[in-house]
Design a protein around this nucleic acid. Structure first.
Length: 244
DNA sequence: AAGGGATTCAACCGCCTTTAT
DNA sequence: TATAAAGGCGGTTGAATCCCT
């Protein structure tokens, strides 16, 4: 019947989902600064966040941690990713350990959005070239797993050849992608606040102070590149949070 | 200038493993 | 030791954004 698998106890079944607000980020950063990370479920409660422990952990690890590396993937990093993926398949966290500051999520996303399609293109190309040859039964680089990963050795060098030969190579990889890669601390896009409902502050947490005043445009830049909250803004809000 | 398809990426889910009781 | 809870992982999703006509 009413099985409530996780998140037992504690009334307050309200668990927030979706994008993190700046307020939530600040609470999390602040809490971890004071108490350290780990024990995520209790951390979430103690900090007053209406999030699951998992969600807090993910947010911290992938985004808020101070040592998350900012900026676009470099050609060197890309090469490494390609090599390691060729070796290990979709073992993202394992791969990530070899790219300091990069998260498994980021690498996974990068792979799927930036590399995979090139490889597929290259494969198609080869395919057509060697039409009379036997057709590879799709190395299936993605989609429905077919799990190269779980097969433990999975030396799926399947596409290794493709990746080295196609123009995914660093020299031709245009880097054309600019912007994005906001990362941890500077990642508070003011525009996002306009797309989301006003900060859902509960006054238990913020009895006297209110961030939103700091969220007006006075302190934001308009250029795309700098269209994020500055460190100063963050800090001042953080101090407000701390009650000075 | 506006509409719409394509792309990106933060964050979710379910499953499996590890740790705690 | 057995069971439950937490942590970790990889696949997937969809809102926001980009890009093209």
């Amino acid at each position: 019947m009413d099985k409530k698998p996780c998140n037992s106890s504690s009334q307050d079944p309200e668990v927030r989902k979706g994008p993190w607000t700046m307020e939530e980020d600040l609470i999390l950063i602040n809490y971890i600064a004071n108490h350290g990370e780990g024990v995520w479920n209790s951390l979430a409660k103690a900090a007053g966040l209406k999030r699951t422990g998992k969600s807090c952990r993910l947010r911290w690890l992938n985004y808020l941690r101070p040592d998350v590396r900012r900026g676009n993937i470099t050609p060197e990093e890309q090469l490494l990713i390609m090599e390691l993926h060729a070796k290990w398949g979709n073992r993202w966290s394992k791969i990530a350990k070899h790219l300091p500051g990069r998260t498994d999520n980021e690498i996974k996303n990068y792979w799927r959005t930036r590399i995979q399609k090139h490889i597929k293109q290259a494969e198609n190309y080869h395919h057509h070239q060697s039409n009379n040859q036997l057709h590879h039964p799709h190395h299936e680089l993605s989609t429905t797993n077919s799990d190269q990963t779980t097969s433990n050795d999975n030396t799926n060098n399947n596409y290794q050849q493709a990746s080295t030969s196609c123009h995914v190579s660093t020299t031709t990889m245009p880097d054309h992608h600019h912007h994005h890669h906001h990362h941890p601390m500077d990642a508070y896009s003011p525009t996002s606040f306009h797309h989301h409902p006003p900060p859902p502050l509960n006054n238990d947490l913020f009895p006297t102070h209110q961030f939103p005043t700091a969220l007006d445009h006075s302190s934001t830049c308009t250029s795309q590149e700098n269209n994020y909250w500055s460190m100063e803004d963050l800090w001042s809000n953080m101090q407000l949070l701390n009650g000075d």
